[in-house]
Each structure stands twice: as C-alpha cells, then as structure tokens.
Lab assay of single mutants.
Amino acid sequence: MDALKSAGRALIRSPSLAKQSWGGGGRHRKLPENWTDTRETLLEGMLFSLKYLGMTLVEQPKGEELSAAAIKRIVATAKASGKKLQKVTLKVSPRGIILTDNLTNQLIENVSIYRISYCTADKMHDKVFAYIAQSQHNQSLECHAFLCTKRKMAQAVTLTVAQAFKVAFEFWQVSKEEKEKRDKASQEGGDVLGARQDCTPPLKSLVATGNLLDLEETAKAPLSTVSANTTNMDEVPRPQALSGSSVVWELDDGLDEAFSRLAQSRTNPQVLDTGLTAQDMHYAQCLSPVDWDKPDSSGTEQDDLFSF
C-alpha cells in the first residue's frame, strides 16, 4: 500500500511530472533526481522514447528462454528487412502500455495491464526491452520488442512496467475491499429498513384510530445511509488515497477476473515476472533518469539497429 499512497501523494503535489519523457535525446524537461521519484509518476504514465523492432507469436506467457528466442527472431526479421526502425513513445501506467508513433502521434497499440504476463531486458541484446501480452483480438500470446538507447534504459522500462503492474494490483485490492464494505453496509441498511417496515402498523389501523404518522421519526431512520450505499452501487469504487486528485481509476471486468485468478494461483500475485536478476534490479533502481541518457562506457552510441 505504500507504493499506492506515495504515488497518489506525488501526483497530487505535481501532476505535471508524469508528462516528462525519457530517452528522447535531450528533449525532456528537468528530471527527478532518483528512481523513487520517477516511480511516483506512474499514475498518469511515464513516457519512454524507443524504437519498435516488431512482434512475434509465442506459445507460453512467460520465460527467459522463451523471450530470448522470440527477441532473436524479431531482431533477425528487422535486420533482414533493412528498413529504419519506427520511433515510438511507450506510455507506461497502472492501466497498461500505450504505444504511439512519434511522427504521426497515431495510436499503435493499447495493452491493458492485466494482459501483460512478462517483461524483460534481454541478456543477449542488452539494449532490447520486450514484453509478452495476450492479444486483445484473440487468445494468442505476442512478444513485442523495442530497441532502447542503452542497457540502462531497457532495464528502466522493464522495472517501470513491473512497478505499474504492482500498483494496478494494489488498486484492485483496495477497490475489492471498498466494494465488500459497501455491499455489507448496503445489506445491513436493508435489514434495518426491513425491520422498521415489519414493526410499522398498517396504514388502515392508523387511520381508524385517528393517529398521525410521525414524519420526524421517519426522517431519523437510516434511510439516507441505505440510499447512499445503493444509489451508486454500479459505480466502481476508487482508492481513497486518490481522493481529490485528477486521476480516475476504473476497474473493468477483465482486470477484476484476471487479478482474482492471480490472487488464487500465485504466492506473490502482485509481482510481474521479469528477466532481471536481483543485481540488475538493484543497479537500475539506483540510477537517476539522467543516467539513462548518458552514453555507455563501451563506446559511442549508434542510432541504428545494427549497432548491437
């Protein structure tokens, strides 16, 4: 819950932080000083300027060897085509990944977070970031790969997607708890209302004896509580940590079903599988986004697919 609360507080303090972009060759504004600060901008989305290598189908939802083989196929196909790589912007948030063309600003792909089953910074092609997700059109699994400016960037994108998945799962947990509370309150309110109706004398007997209905007592009954809980029953509950912020979080049926399955089948359902080692994760978390744009010590960066 700490990640969720800190993310909400950060967004309320400075929503404009989320509009910064990394990996864009110096076009961005001043960047936060450390990885923790940038992680807090996830709610509205972190932007990464990358190059799209392509996509291939895979048979399993996750796995280092599986993704490595898929990336190898994608890279080989991209090299064989001889075409310049498409420059894209990857927007990562707890909602998922939005992929747009840098030149036309046209939407290429919009992947809900619950469809993503794996992401990684490839070991062999260490400047490549990739994720595996279920197609929104059918049940097939797709591996999408992107060329980053350097290994640090690939690791940073991988960690960002993993963190977005974690925050999304926490949102789901909060929403589920809130819905259970509202359902319980609604049920209790309905029981109270039913009890009051059972003990209320029939209207005919009131008229016969000349008694008047006590409207004041009726007004004191917990009807307002019942209506408050039943009027918006169809509205999706939102985490309290975000009250007053500009973010509107809505959970669709697909996300609810997917996270429910994860909660039942996995020990740590909030953790998205990645190909990063503990050492890689520690190294990337210690980086400032400013470091992502620094040239690798191995030599001059080449803006070309064939540089790796």
Rank of each mutant, 00 (worst) to 15 (best):
D273Y: 03
N211K: 14
F169W: 04
K87G: 13
S227V: 10
W35G: 14
K72I: 05
S227P: 11
Y114P: 03
P94M: 12
K19G: 15
V58G: 01
G210R: 12
S14G: 12
G63M: 04
A164G: 14
G189A: 05
L147K: 11
F48C: 01
F259H: 12
R13S: 08
Y52C: 12
S245V: 03
P32Q: 06
G45H: 06
G299I: 10
A258I: 05
S21W: 08
A78G: 07
Q60D: 01
T274D: 12
D198S: 03
L276Y: 08
Q60E: 08
I97T: 01
T149F: 06
W172E: 03
D214P: 06
R182H: 13
N229W: 03
A258T: 08
E217L: 12
N211Q: 13
V290K: 10
A208G: 12
P94Q: 06
K51A: 02
R29F: 08
N211T: 06
A241N: 06
P237S: 13
K181M: 09
N268R: 02
Y283H: 11
C199G: 09
P295Y: 06
D2I: 01
L53Y: 01
E64K: 06
E217R: 12
D122Y: 00
N34Q: 11
T231W: 02
Y283L: 13
K294V: 15
L4H: 06
F169K: 02
K79H: 09
D234C: 03
C119E: 01
G24D: 11
R29K: 13
S16E: 07
I113M: 03
S135V: 05
A241K: 07
L43W: 15
K179C: 12
R182G: 12
A130W: 00
K127R: 00
L223Y: 02
L272W: 03
T100S: 10
E188I: 02
H282C: 13
S245D: 12
G299Q: 08
V192H: 06
V161M: 03
A258V: 03
A3Q: 10
A168L: 08
A70M: 02
S175P: 07
S260M: 09
G194D: 06
R29P: 15
L203E: 06
V128R: 00
A241R: 09
G210A: 10
L242N: 12
A130P: 00
P269A: 04
W22N: 03
V157S: 02
A208H: 06
G26T: 12
V58S: 08
R27P: 10
P239E: 07
S14M: 01
G254R: 13
E40N: 14
G189P: 07
V207I: 12
H28L: 14
L203M: 09
A130F: 00
D293T: 10
I98W: 00
E40C: 04
A133H: 11
S297I: 06
E188T: 05
Q173T: 13
S140I: 12
K83M: 11
A241L: 06
D101Y: 07
Q60I: 12
A69L: 09
L203H: 05
P239W: 05
T267M: 04
S21E: 08
L141S: 10
E188M: 03
D296C: 05
P61H: 02
L42I: 14
M281G: 04
Q134R: 15
G210E: 13
G24Y: 08
D183E: 15
T274F: 02
L242W: 14
E59V: 13
A3N: 07
M233G: 09
D253G: 08
A219G: 15
P222G: 09
L50T: 06
L31K: 04
P201H: 10
R95I: 03
E250W: 04
Y114N: 04
S297M: 07
T230K: 06
T100M: 09
L159S: 15
E178Q: 07
A133T: 09
D291M: 05
L251S: 08
L66W: 01
R182N: 15
Q106D: 01
L262C: 03
Q187D: 02
G8C: 01
G190H: 07
K51T: 00
Y283V: 12
C286V: 10
N211S: 07
L57E: 08
S81D: 15
Y131K: 01
A221H: 02
L242K: 13
P32D: 11
K83I: 06
V290Y: 11
S246P: 10
N34V: 13
P295K: 07
S112N: 03
L43Q: 14
P32V: 14
L99V: 12
N102V: 15
L147C: 03
D253I: 09
L272N: 05
T231M: 04
D198I: 09
T231H: 07
Y131S: 00
R182S: 15
P295A: 15
D291R: 08
L255H: 04
